[in-house]
């Protein structure tokens, strides 16, 4: 199927709805597509050391392959914003403590912070947490489980609602124009982002 970027989509929409949108309105919407914010980002929830570890962590959960990964999508920044501004104080607290266990375990096992570990070491440690968290008898109230489950949820949410996750890994069609309920999968292609 034909790829369609947002600018094309909006211009096509503008044609469809004709006089309803003023040219000024169109211009202001299109302007939103081109603005690139200057990068003066500072974490609100994580410390700089924690950001480094979480940046490495998100990249192991969803690594760059032939398509971009979670680091490219800035998922660690998304996590920081969600934890700082959306999470409830008790969940923030559990996350911090659970994250600290995880980070200290990297130092204990491998003698260096998670971000500095080899990828195989990082994967091994994540695997240990996966086993622990998804065990049938896992304690849902433990900070380790709370940290890991909310971290995993935030990574996948952040990645698949990001532009690269939605458009390059999955597919996103801003204006489908039609609904077809039963097409051969190979004709549709990858899973829809939404």
């Amino acid at each position: 199927m034909m790829a369609i970027n947002r600018r094309t989509a909006i211009q096509r929409t503008a044609l469809l709805i004709g006089g309803l949108l003023s040219s000024g309105t169109i211009a202001s919407i299109l302007e939103g597509c081109t603005t690139v914010p200057a990068d003066n980002w500072h974490p609100k929830f994580f410390t700089p050391e924690e950001v480094a570890d979480m940046e490495a962590f998100v990249e192991r959960l969803i690594p760059a392959t032939d398509t971009p990964g979670a680091r490219d999508a800035g998922v660690h920044r998304f996590m920081d914003a969600m934890l700082a501004d959306v999470a409830e104080p008790e969940d923030q607290q559990a996350f911090k403590v659970g994250m600290e266990h995880f980070r200290q375990e990297a130092v204990r096992r491998y003698g260096q912070v998670f971000a500095q570990c080899e990828a195989t070491q990082q994967d091994e440690l994540i695997g240990v947490w996966e086993q622990k968290v998804f065990a049938p008898n896992a304690d849902e109230q433990s900070v380790d489980v709370k940290f890991y489950k909310s971290a995993k949820q935030l990574v996948f949410l952040g990645f698949f609602t990001s532009e690269v996750g939605a458009t390059q890994v999955l597919q996103y069609d801003p204006i489908p124009g039609v609904y077809r309920g039963c097409l051969p999968l190979e004709q549709v292609g990858r899973a829809w982002a939404i």
């Binding site: 909006i10 939103g32 914003a81 949410l157 990001s162 532009e163 939605a166 996103y172």
Partner: peptide, 13 residues
Amino acid sequence: FKAPWELPYADRL
């Protein structure tokens, strides 16, 4: 016209 990534906090409040 907002795409998912144009909404802060993945559209949450």
